[in-house]
């Protein structure tokens, strides 16, 4: 039987490098930089966080916000420009639908989410669900007990 270098388990996988690079590239492309998803900035403080997103041209009705556990979802549709016999178009602005999911480092108290929007800047304030306070446990040492 002829030796097939692509099938020989003793040899290093020649496609491993490509697979690793592709995985990295997929991850990189998943992070929106330009494109249709609105850029966000996240701020935090002890009891919650603030998410700001740039959505110029959208009205509050055009935004769908959803909170589920520790995930925030921001979705919407960029408004279409009325076409009326457009002869030529140079496009830089985003169009179509967008969905952006954020995983936050805490469970969100869904009853306390506040969202406001002004001049195309969306601000969402999210608070942690109140946790049961951690109990401090005092450590007894042998010397504190009477023998």
């Amino acid at each position: 039987m002829l030796w097939n270098p692509f099938n020989d388990p003793r040899l290093p996988d020649p496609f491993r490098t490509i697979r690793v690079l592709q995985g990295g590239l997929d991850q990189l492309l998943a992070t929106p930089t330009t494109g249709t998803t609105p850029p966000i900035t996240v701020y935090s403080k002890d009891d919650g966080c603030l998410v700001r997103a740039l959505v110029p041209g959208l009205a509050p009705n055009d935004i769908e916000l959803e909170v589920d556990g520790d995930e925030l979802s921001i979705a919407g549709h960029w408004p279409d420009e009325p076409d009326a016999e457009v002869l030529a178009r140079h496009s830089e602005r985003p169009s179509g639908r967008f969905v952006r999911n954020l995983r936050l480092p805490f469970e969100v108290d869904a009853s306390r989410v506040v969202a406001r929007m002004e001049r195309g800047v969306l601000e969402i304030e999210l608070f942690r669900t109140p946790e049961k306070k951690a109990h401090r446990i005092e450590v007894q040492t042998d010397s504190s007990r009477s023998h």
Binding site: P32, T41, Y43, S44, K45, C49, L50, R52
Partner: peptide, 13 residues
Amino acid sequence: PSNASEWKAVWSE
């Protein structure tokens, strides 16, 4: 952001 002094930016795009 509103009440800027309370917040610390953790991710900025």
